[in-house]
């Protein structure tokens, strides 16, 4: 007790002088640092925002330069080409749904099962899930070409792209789901459920999965964002999705307004998805002490 009181007592007379000097130095450093930060944020902010603004401004360009018009945005659904845009949009949206569903069915149960029952497998699972980050998509597509030759014997629809898209989305889904799985005490939850007589099926789908719905939502949104922007697999395999069609339009009609409005629209959807995601993610983290 005495010792604790002694230290502030000793410190009091020194305080007005020493920290004053330090604080003065700090203040000048702070000022320089703040000046640097504002300059950096302004320059980088401009660099990142200008192309986005330019694209949106371009999409709102009227028939005469300098005028404004929403014609290009209305065209998104009605653009007749060549090539027409709407079928590609439909295919891409369907692909987004199918890819997300397959991802859910394939990855979520596997990850929960491995976490609960087959822990020795978790390193293999992690390796396989993160491998697509290392192997460039343009390399993967070379190996996928012969496989897609086989698939095309049965079905030539561009919807078949989902087989490859699930692989591309694996790393993002894996990270999102891992965050969800580690944020809860899955082992205790499953032991509690089991001791109350639950089957493993019940444990996985009615106990663990509902506890990680935010992580599952994250994984879904990342998958959708990925499918909306995918070009590398579709184009060399001569499938047509939204990005491939935009590319074809750009080669047929230079600077077509619909190009920029459709690009901006895709981007805005992806932005919205990922911003929702970062918001949900923050709430998820904040919820955990």
């Amino acid at each position: 007790m005495a010792a604790v009181n002694e230290i502030p007592a000793l410190g009091v007379p020194a305080e007005p002088q020493a920290p004053q000097g330090v604080r003065g130095l700090r203040a000048s450093q702070r000022r320089r640092l703040n000046a640097f930060r504002y300059v950096a944020f302004t320059i980088f902010g401009l660099f990142f925002l200008l192309p986005l603004f330019a694209m949106i401004r371009f999409s709102l360009e009227g028939s005469k330069p300098g005028t404004w018009s929403v014609a290009a945005w209305k065209q998104i659904a009605s653009y007749q080409g060549p090539p027409p845009l709407l079928p590609a949009i439909e295919i891409t949206l369907e692909l987004a749904v199918i890819t997300s569903l397959v991802m859910l069915v394939l990855v979520v149960p596997t990850m929960i099962w491995v976490k609960l029952r087959v822990q020795w497998f978790s390193r293999v699972l992690e390796f396989l899930c993160l491998l697509p980050l290392t192997i460039p998509a343009i390399v993967l597509v070379v190996g996928l070409a012969p496989i897609y030759n086989r698939i095309e014997r049965y079905n030539v629809s561009a919807l078949m792209l989902f087989w490859a898209y699930v692989i591309l989305a694996l790393p993002y889904a894996y990270r999102a789901l891992t965050a969800g799985l580690t944020a809860m005490d899955a082992t205790t939850l499953s032991e509690a459920a089991r001791s109350l007589g639950a089957r493993w099926f019940t444990v996985m789908f009615r106990v663990i999965a509902p506890n990680m719905w935010q992580a599952i939502l994250n994984a879904l949104m990342l998958t959708v964002a990925l499918v909306l922007g995918e070009f590398t697999i579709a184009y060399p395999l001569t499938y047509v999705n939204l990005q491939v069609e935009l590319f074809s339009i750009s080669r047929n009609t230079v600077n077509a307004g619909v190009l920029f409005s459709a690009s901006a629209a895709t981007l805005l959807v992806a932005f919205a998805l990922l911003l929702i995601l970062s918001y949900v993610g923050r709430r998820l983290r904040r919820g955990r002490p």
Partner: peptide
């Protein structure tokens, strides 16, 4: 950063074409 690091592809090339393209640049 999370969004823009993923923002590649065809769309990004168009965005720069609209900004500083040799005939169409707004900037």
């Amino acid at each position: 950063s999370g969004v823009l690091a993923q923002f590649g592809g065809v769309t990004l090339a168009f965005a720069f074409l609209a900004t500083i393209g040799p005939t169409s640049g707004i900037l």
